[in-house]
Nucleic acid binder design. Sequence first.
DNA 1: CGTGTTTGACCTGCGC
DNA 2: GCGCAGGTCAAACACG
Length: 308
Amino acid sequence: MEKDNMDLKKTEDAVAFGSSNGYYNNPLLLSSAFDFSCEVEKSSFMELLGVQDYYNNSGAVLDLPQLSKATVFPFTTVNASCDDTAKECSEVLNQKHQPATPNSSSISSASSEAVNDEHNKTVEQDDDDDDDDSEEDEGEEEQLKAKKTKQKRQREPRFAFMTKSEVDHLEDGYRWRKYGQKAVKNSPFPRSYYRCTSASCNVKKRVERSFTDPSVVVTTYEGQHIHPSPVMPRSAIAGVGSNLGSLMPGNYMSHYHQHRHHHQQLLVNTLFSLGIPYNNSNNIDNSSFSQDNGLLQDIVPSHMLKEK
DNA sequence: CGTGTTTGACCTGCGC
DNA sequence: GCGCAGGTCAAACACG
């Protein structure tokens, strides 16, 4: 498990990069959270998405038929058991998440700011192994106590992605119930808090509009769904929605694989919400998903994985 | 009536 | 200790 954490930490080094390709002129900026743990996977994944061009360690310019172009940033991977304090993590990330191209486009910096800002807030978790989720629900005092302790100890892994969209709450294949809204300091746009409506699923998400670029929506997910997406298309369900991340107990997969799975799921959900088939340029038949493992290779043709 | 949203109050953590 | 900001709760409300 510790090794997994280390791997995940490495992926946190991913930086939100600006692109010199003027992607901000494109109708859609899609920035998502992927932890490409190795170059093979990264290239394969992007190839899968129909990426025409990508750069090592930088944002990739996607050339998707339905989108014109979009940019994917690998960022905001948060491991679930970082022992460091949030402060320490934030400091590290602050240093590392400087735009690679300082003179990149305005939206790039704006996005990066948003990302960094989000990231700073995102990288806060504790590693309480002594968690016992025993909660007595007798007596209001006990409830309150439980609430307090629970709130303090539990912090699910979070990650964010940014989407250029006119609507704040993007359809991602799951049903959400809004449970709060707060004004954000230094921003005219409020932050909305949503919770997955599925029983016993504690996934939350925050949605806020970047004040530096009001056309960009920053969505932050916390936790992982323990159920299939109720409204996912069959292809996506076959590829992601019904895989281990949905069907297996949370502790079955390593954190690492859970993250990978979740990021894939996020991408697929996001692309789906935008009307983009995630396998648009590949002949991936559903049979290949029948025994997936929630891993990248489950949605990437095998020949891609062989490429080095 | 069930489901989801709104919104003010409250709690918590953090910096000073 | 105090103030602030983020996050959550829950009653009231809206809507189909």
